[in-house]
């Protein structure tokens, strides 16, 4: 058995990479939410000085990466690999950002699970001795996602109560071989799970089984319980999905309810911001983790957390062809310090 492997699908990193810096850029609506003080940049206009929302999204991703590098005086030449993904067809936000950055690039698609997918790979790259510094970044944009997956913005339709609001946001995380923490210590990679949900307006329910599956496997593989974590955060099952996932996990003998939150619930005020079930999109877990959670780890409010980004792997074509929605979730454990 591979020396770093634990149980079925978890790995324990032997040389845990440290998170050196993060940067987040969010749109105006996110900048009015409860986490507004934790983001680096809140845009006044979500076109970000560009001619289209796709261009704006790519710029957000690119600038988040640049900002994260600038914070620790890093030049692009010092970064070995750049892992990024987004929701747009052919992940254009990420590749077009990589075009400007000039860092060797792995483009990823994991829908909203892309943040932890990118961080998993970026961490393994460093842990395995293939890189000194890697960057993981993701983005999403309400308006570019809306036109690709749903209706034109000016179309007068109603959103059902189960629907989620795509977050306009981008986040970048710099990982390095040497640093003072927090550290990425465990990685549990998700399987694609599909329990037959077909309603594209209820993605929380489509992804909840995948999130529960990954969390349960992580706990079984490592022997941890909820007591070992200060916080377990999925991103983004939103309100309905979180409840369902918590129920499934409970039915399987683990009670994580008190530690369990979701990035889609944290980023918006669900009662006043008219987002229905909560936020979604790659940018949601990226901005909540990179903005809020990372700062809680640095100042010691949190010591040991698990982040599980969850993705709904559907496309407008698959929905029209009557396919159900496959979900995926990747978990990573992050610890403030390594003494234990």
């Amino acid at each position: 058995m591979a020396e770093k492997k634990m149980g079925l699908h978890t790995i324990k990193l032997k040389n845990p990479p440290s998170i050196l810096s993060t940067a987040t850029i969010v749109g105006p609506k996110e900048g009015e939410g409860p986490l507004k003080d934790y983001f680096d940049i809140v845009l006044e206009d979500d076109l970000f000085g560009e001619k289209s929302w796709e261009k704006a999204e790519s710029k957000m991703l690119r600038e988040a990466v640049r900002l994260a590098m600038n914070k620790i005086n890093l030049s692009p030449d010092q970064v070995d690999y750049f892992f990024a993904g987004d929701l747009l067809n052919q992940i254009i936000s990420s590749s077009f950002a990589a075009r400007e950055l000039g860092i060797p690039f792995f483009g990823l698609y994991g829908a909203c699970s892309t943040l932890t997918e990118a961080m998993s790979l970026a961490a393994m790259m460093v842990d395995g001795g293939f890189a000194d510094i890697t960057i993981a970044a993701t983005s999403s944009h309400f308006s570019s996602a809306e036109r690709q997956f749903r209706f034109p913005l000016e179309h007068g339709n109603q959103r059902p109560p189960t629907s989620q609001w795509t977050v306009t946001g981008a986040g970048a995380v710099v990982l390095g071989r040497e640093g003072k923490g927090p550290y990425v210590t465990y990685i549990t990679t998700g399987r694609v799970v599909d329990f037959g949900i077909k309603d594209a307006n209820n993605m929380g329910a489509a992804m909840a089984p995948a999130a529960a599956d990954t969390i349960l496997r992580h706990l079984k593989d490592t022997g941890f319980t909820a007591a070992d974590y200060d916080l377990i955060m999925t991103g983004d099952l939103a309100k309905i999905g979180r409840e369902i996932a918590a129920d499934i996990i409970k039915q399987n003998g683990y009670d994580i309810t008190t530690k369990f939150t979701d990035a889609g619930i944290e980023i918006f005020d669900l009662t006043t911001q008219d987002v229905h079930s909560g936020g979604s999109g790659c940018g949601c877990s990226a901005s909540v983790f990179g903005g809020y959670i990372y700062k809680q780890l640095i100042n010691g409010n949190l010591n040991r957390i698990m982040i599980i980004s969850t993705g709904a792997l559907l496309s407008p074509t698959s929905t029209q062809q009557g396919e159900s929605i496959p979900g995926i979730a990747h978990a990573i454990t992050i610890e403030r310090s390594l003494e234990k």
Partner: peptide, 11 residues
């Protein structure tokens, strides 16, 4: 209308 106006983001 497409000539005259641009779509606006929802809040």
């Amino acid at each position: 209308m497409a000539l005259l106006f641009n779509p606006k983001t929802k809040n």
